[in-house]
Write a protein that binds this DNA or RNA. Sequence first.
DNA 1: GCCTCCGATATGTCTAGACATATTAATCAT
DNA 2: ATGATTAATATGTCTAGACATATCGGAGGC
Lengths: 234, 234
Amino acid sequence: MSRPEPPSRFRAVKAEILRRVRARDWAPGDLLPAETELAAEFGCARATVNRAMRELAEAGVLDRKRRAGTRVSTAPVRPARFDIPQTRAEVEQTGATYAYRLLRREEVVAPDWLARLWALPETAAVAHVEALHLADGRPWQFEDRWINLAVVPAASEEDFKTVGPNEWLIAALPFSEAEMVFSAASADAALAHALGLAGGDPIFRAERTTWLEGQPVTYARLSYPSTYRMTTRL
Amino acid sequence: MSRPEPPSRFRAVKAEILRRVRARDWAPGDLLPAETELAAEFGCARATVNRAMRELAEAGVLDRKRRAGTRVSTAPVRPARFDIPQTRAEVEQTGATYAYRLLRREEVVAPDWLARLWALPETAAVAHVEALHLADGRPWQFEDRWINLAVVPAASEEDFKTVGPNEWLIAALPFSEAEMVFSAASADAALAHALGLAGGDPIFRAERTTWLEGQPVTYARLSYPSTYRMTTRL
DNA sequence: GCCTCCGATATGTCTAGACATATTAATCAT
DNA sequence: ATGATTAATATGTCTAGACATATCGGAGGC
């Protein structure tokens, strides 16, 4: 999981501040001493206290404003972090053998809902790929992928027979911006067949839209059997 | 959403490095120049470059190791961040009116599965609460909550008739550690009835376990109708 | 060849000091 | 009172320099 962080001055300060918040020495809404005061108390430089408090603000524990000072957060929004792995790596990490199967590959004019989602002209060409990812031979994820050929023309050259579109896109356009939406749905006939489920079985669904410099690159609808679990720690 | 960050030297450096990574000046796996070299190139202090690179490493773009230097990340794990709001705030943000309804409240000996999950003795006392959260009168979330009375004895005094257990716990024990698991399931009869669904309808499920200094505080199973969507940007 | 030791090196952290900037609180003019 | 101006202040950022530490590569010994 997460390796233990090395000991350091600012981490000690951070831990002590968090301890006092949890112990209610400083209750939600309370004003904390200024950085200079805490630096004097802890016997370290202001920059060290600054880093500790900045990271606690990142974690949602503190609220900081110039001149107004630092308060214990009252807003009950806690940012959670979790890793979005590539499907292959995710499967292999469970110890299972990964396999990939292409089910469909076509180039079409963007359907209405996609053209609307991306604000594209009527005649925009897109690649549409349907594929199945398997763990030890059992269906793991059904991938329904749409690629904007205006932005990624190279996708026309790729047949996606051995490498999945997700993997290919990450290699072609790394570190683009993305938005993900998670939800639950029930399997229609086609999806149930592909995933080896019964019709109506629950599906864990992830939808991912990706942009490169403001331009829509790809939209993917990833469907998992309900045995799939996504975990995070905060 | 996210307010625009103020311009600053380290953000400009960060943006320029990210630009070069995206432009493949530095491809995945490539070694970047050392901090001192980049500091010389950008005409700023090493600490400024350090902050830029550190934040890019946090975002999963770079891999850094002492002595070995900094490389563009090849590991395709991108950390995503999203906010876990309190249910009340989440509902009210949609513009809807929030309502809360207590369905059950009891104190019992921890059932087997919970005692095992928490590694508790056989006779541990827990509070069990079932409640419904509504948006504009329509079921939004069903909350199935278990509280470890050994750690939070004050929960015995609370009847949870007007304030939900989640809200109460956050006020009582802010900033504790938590783990969340998201999955899909189908509604059993009781859940379907509570949420106003048909049996077998898909459910978006979040399970949350919370600790305070290593001790289990509470376990909650939150069930949403499949219209619920959880969104993140990375 | 193989192993151990050791020095070089890039990042990790820290300090003291400086200036920038948002925002509050006080002051002053109307 | 009310509104505009101004000073004070806490955080935000930056610099130059220092020492710590993990680790890579080579030198030397077997």
